[in-house]
Each structure stands twice: as structure tokens, then as C-alpha cells.
Design a protein around this nucleic acid. Structure first.
Length: 553
DNA sequence: TTTCTCCTGCGTCCGTCCCG
DNA sequence: CGGGACGGACGCAGGAGAAA
């Protein structure tokens, strides 16, 4: 405690509120330094804000990041909510605040040369033994920094970064616990090479007798991460002219290159291959797909009504998830891609009407389909164009969702179209799909996953015996890599794709694919008796119209 | 072929709600 | 404040596909 602080407190009028507050703060500060010592040395007794009935271990406690008082980890959030020392601006944000990670970030003062962005990513991690290990090791922090430099601008990659860091954290934890190697600097010493390898094996659950891994993929990933950490250490050593470390990292690199496949990857790959064997491949029944569709219909309608009447984060989430599942189902897209859709991407969608020359080449039916669906183009994985089709219903729902964002506690910084209230992440597509799949009463809900659905489309298109270039269109829409030859198409890619694929999708939704067997896309028209299932009212009306026109010639 | 990055399905644990 | 109940957010394992 500095004398200046004490003097300032004493100068305040006795029994004044400010004086009391300052005193508490000072006392907490003192307790904090005392407690830190106790925790570090493991001896002495902790000064608690409150004494508890049950006996907790030292590690069950954590200091509040605002007032420095010591609380049970479990209950810290409760205190923080009302902590008097909390700055006012911290109050403004609602919902999950990651109190625990914030607090323990505060405990480890390791944040010197690490950029604020990395700090932010680290805060997002679940607070546990692993993440505190990550925070405590400079090498891992630098690894985090390097990931951040590479991916930092893209919040969708934070999850991936978390995962890589945690893997390293787990390895380091193992090294510390069972092999008394405390940093990666120690780990790369040639003398420790074998030890590190056995640590990797141990983390991945290697069985010496059976020569197989419990989690073979982890062994492979750790191998990669180790090399990366080694590179980072090498650079650091070069910069600081640390000659022993330079030598260590160099030898580690060669050792690893030569020995890795023999010691790690070979067995890991064998294990993976063995597991891959004997795995039944299954596709969802068309009937189940239809069930899911009907269920989503119902849910969407309910949620829509609910949200219109009273907007709350809950009703918002409900509609958001239902709509999202709908989009995934109708487009047969990967959940991940839909999750990453941004608000901007949707708002900037192409709403321009069809070009006349283009329209000329299409049948009436196809023309209507073009007007029916909205088309949003997204940046795919590797900059590849990804197309998502929206029915008017979906557009309506999403428009409502966008209007209600603020009301329902969606943060302004959240860039995603399907944003979660109170945090910066989007809903996860696969989670939504799974939720509704299990609710809808399908016979095999576990087959109603986006991968399976994609396969479903692929298989069914083969049944349809499409011409080669038509298959290309389907494949392209599903995002598979195919060599698309532009000369196949008489019309610009966008239009043909939109018209024909939506035709196919509608047919599948209606469960009337069978009647199309052997027809080419050109020949496919939706027939009157194809309305086995009417999912979208509007679509039905529209289709009825089309039907009339077709029969009228 | 190896390495890297991203995606998916599932289980679990944590935050929140609510009551005493 | 203590503690039980519940549902959703997040981590983990592993697969897929592209780049090197």
C-alpha cells in the first residue's frame, strides 16, 4: 500500500461514503496481494470476502477484476453484477459477459507484447485449467498472436483459433504435470525430444499394447502445432541472439521431420483408417425430410406470431433458428456456410430484374421461379462464390428479424445475419438443424443432417439421370468442385442455375421426384398431382397459377 | 502425399432463473 | 445469500477438401 493512497483516504471526512469505499478498496488490495502470495506458495490462509461453510480449495477462488475481493469462482458472476467498483460503462453491455475469463485474464499479467486483439480472443475462451495454461505460456501466446495476425480480421475463425490454442494448452499441461517440462523452450531441447513425443502420445491416449490412439487426430494436430511453436521459438531465438535456443530449435526441427511419421503420424493414421472401416453409409428417407419440412413450417409460423406480438430475445432466437434451419434445408447447404452469412451480404443481394435476352431463353415456369426466389451470393471458403436461394417467406422472416435485432438484444457489432442475442457469434447451423430434426418426429432424425441431405440431393440427381452438364450445375450449386465449362451454357450461369436448381429443389420438397425419373432438367415441369405436400402457401398459389398457364399452353 | 484449414455432430458444463 | 433445475453455448473429436 502506498502512503499516498492511505493519506488520501484519511483526508476524506470520517464516515463519508467515499471514505468507506476507498477503505474497502484498500483493504481488498491488501488482501489481494496477500492472497496471491498464499496461492503461489500454497501456504498460509486466504483472506476471504466471506467465510464459507464448506471447505473449498485455493483454486476454487478468484479475485474480482474490479474490486479485487476474493470470491468463489462459481459465484463471481453474481458479485460482479452488483460490484460497486465496477466502472459504469461495463454495465451497458447485457447478457453473457464471460466474467470468469475476464477475471483470470486479470490475474495473469502476461499480456505485455500481445496485441489487444489476441487478448480479446483469449477472453472469449472458456475459463478452465487449459485456458489458464494457454495464458501463462509466452510461446502459446505468441502462437495465438501469429494466428491472430493471419486470421484476426475474421471473427468466424475465432473458434478455430480457440481450438488450436487449447490443443497446445493441453499438451503443455501434460508436459508440466507428468514430465516436469514447464515451457516449450525446455520441450524443444534435443535431450527432451523423446519425452515430448511420449507426452503427445499420452495426451492423445496412446495404447502401447494395441498400438493405437484413443484420439488419433489429436496426435496429428499436435504434431503440426509443435512444429509451428518450434518455428516461433526459433524466430525469437534468432532475434534475441540466444544461441543455445537457436541450436535447440534447429535440432528439434530436423529431429521432428525425420522421426515424426515414424513415431506419431503412421500409427495415428492407421488408427484413423481402421475406425473408418465398417461404417455404414445411410441417407435420410424422403419421408423424413418432408416431416422435417412440415415441422419447420409450423415452428416458423408460431415464432413469427410470437415475435410480432412481443419481441424478446427468446422469440427472436426461435424464429432465427427456425428460419435458419429452413434455409439450410431448402438449399441443402452446409450449416457453417449459412451461419457465416453476414447482414451486409443479405442486404446487398441482387434484386435487379432479369435481363430481357436472358428471360427469352427460359420457359414460363422457369421465369416464375426466378421471380419467386431471391438469390444471395456469399464469399465461400476459398473465395468461391456460394449461392443461397431464399423464398419470399424466408425473406419476410429475415426482414422482421433484422428490424427486431435491437429490441431483442442483438449487439450492434454482431455482423452476422443469424446473430445470437447478447454475444458476437451467430447461431450454429448444424445445431438448429439437429434441434428440429429431433423434434419433428422423423423415424431417423440422426440422418437429417446437412451432410446427409447434401448426399441425398446428389444421389437423387443421379437417379434423375441428368445430362452431364446438368449434373455439373447441381454439383456447382452444392459447392462441389467441378470443372465448369462455360461453353455449356447458352445463358449466363446465374440464371440457368437459379431456374433449374430451384425446380429440382421444389420437386424434392414436394417429394415428387420419382415422377421425374429419366427426364432431363429441360423436360421437368411440376405437374398437378405433384402437390403431395404443400409447404409454403404462397408457393402453392403461385404454382397453381403456373399450372394453369402451362395447361393453357 | 502431407499439411492446413474448416466443417460437423455430439456431449457437457455453465450461466441463469427462480424459490426459499 | 444458498441452492436446485434447466437449457443453451461451447469444446472436442474427427472428417472433408484444398493447398502445398
Amino acid at each position: 500500500k502506498t502512503h499516498a493512497d492511505v493519506a488520501r483516504v484519511l483526508s476524506l471526512p470520517k464516515k463519508s461514503k467515499d471514505r468507506m469505499k476507498m477503505l474497502t478498496k484498500l483493504r481488498n488490495k491488501g488482501n489481494h496481494s496477500h492472497n496471491s502470495e498464499v496461492l503461489a506458495s500454497g501456504i498460509g490462509s486466504l483472506k476471504l470476502r466471506r467465510t464459507a461453510k464448506t471447505n473449498y480449495e485455493g483454486r476454487d477462488y478468484i479475485h474480482c477484476m474490479y474490486c479485487q475481493a476474493l470470491y468463489l469462482r462459481r459465484d463471481l458472476w453474481r458479485h460482479v453484477r452488483k460490484c460497486s467498483s465496477k466502472p459504469v460503462e461495463a454495465n451497458s453491455e447485457v447478457g453473457r459477459k464471460k466474467v470468469l475469463s475476464l477475471a483470470s485474464m486479470n490475474e495473469s499479467a502476461q499480456c505485455q507484447q500481445i496485441s489487444p486483439g489476441v487478448w480479446k480472443i483469449l477472453t472469449g475462451m472458456k475459463d478452465d485449467e487449459i485456458s489458464s495454461t494457454v495464458r501463462s505460456d509466452l510461446s502459446i501466446l505468441q502462437l495465438a498472436q501469429s494466428f491472430f495476425n493471419k486470421h484476426g480480421q475474421d471473427p468466424t475463425k475465432y473458434d478455430y483459433i480457440h481450438q488450436r490454442l487449447r490443443e497446445c494448452g493441453r499438451l503443455l499441461l501434460m508436459l508440466r504435470k507428468d514430465f516436469s517440462i514447464h515451457t516449450f523452450e525446455d520441450a524443444v531441447r534435443p535431450a527432451n525430444f523423446d519425452v515430448v513425443i511420449s507426452a503427445v502420445k499420452k495426451v492423445s491416449g496412446y495404447d502401447e499394447e494395441k498400438h493405437c490412439y484413443h484420439t488419433p487426430s489429436l496426435a496429428l494436430k499436435l504434431g503440426h502445432s509443435l512444429q509451428k511453436v518450434n518455428d516461433i521459438l526459433h524466430c525469437r531465438a534468432l532475434m534475441t541472439q540466444h544461441s543455445t535456443l537457436i541450436k535447440s530449435t534447429q535440432s528439434f526441427k530436423t529431429l521432428f521431420a525425420k522421426k515424426c511419421s515414424e513415431l506419431l503420424s503412421h500409427t495415428a493414421l492407421t488408427t484413423l483408417n481402421e475406425q473408418h472401416f465398417n461404417k455404414p453409409s445411410t441417407l435420410p428417407f424422403t419421408e423424413d425430410v418432408q416431416r422435417l419440412h412440415r415441422h419447420l413450417e409450423k415452428k416458423t409460423e408460431l415464432a413469427l406470431k410470437e415475435l410480432k406480438e412481443h419481441s424478446s430475445p427468446k422469440s427472436y432466437s426461435e424464429l432465427c433458428k427456425a428460419t435458419m434451419a429452413n434455409v439450410i434445408l431448402c438449399n441443402r447447404r452446409r450449416g457453417g456456410e449459412i451461419s457465416k452469412m453476414t447482414l451486409n451480404g443479405f442486404q446487398e443481394r441482387d434484386t435487379s430484374p432479369l435481363h430481357k435476352d436472358v428471360a427469352f431463353g427460359l420457359t414460363k415456369f422457369e421465369l416464375h421461379l426466378c421471380q419467386h426466389f431471391s438469390r444471395v451470393e456469399l464469399r465461400g471458403n476459398k473465395g468461391r462464390k456460394v449461392v443461397v436461394l431464399f423464398s419470399p417467406d424466408m425473406v419476410n422472416n429475415i426482414t422482421l428479424l433484422m428490424e427486431k435485432r435491437e429490441d431483442c438484444g442483438v449487439m450492434a457489432e454482431n455482423l452476422f445475419l443469424f446473430a445470437r442475442p447478447h454475444c458476437l457469434t451467430p447461431f450454429r447451423g448444424q445445431d438448429c438443424l439437429r434441434l428440429y430434426a429431433s423434434e419433428c418426429g422423423a423415424e431417423n432424425p440422426e440422418l437429417l443432417r446437412s451432410t446427409q441431405l447434401r448426399k441425398h440431393v446428389a444421389t437423387l440427381s443421379q437417379i434423375l439421370n441428368l445430362k452431364n452438364h446438368e449434373l455439373d450445375q447441381v454439383a456447382n450449386f452444392l459447392g462441389h468442385d467441378i470443372r465448369v465449362h462455360r461453353e455449356y451454357y447458352r445463358l449466363p450461369e446465374a440464371t440457368t442455375q437459379l431456374a433449374k436448381i430451384s425446380k429440382l429443389l421444389i420437386a424434392m420438397e414436394k417429394g415428387s421426384l420419382k415422377s421425374f425419373q429419366g427426364k432431363t432438367l429441360e423436360e421437368i415441369e411440376i405437374e398437378g398431382n405433384a402437390f403431395i405436400l404443400c409447404s409454403m402457401k404462397e408457393l402453392d398459389l403461385f404454382l397453381a397459377n403456373v399450372e394453369k398457364r402451362i395447361t393453357l399452353g
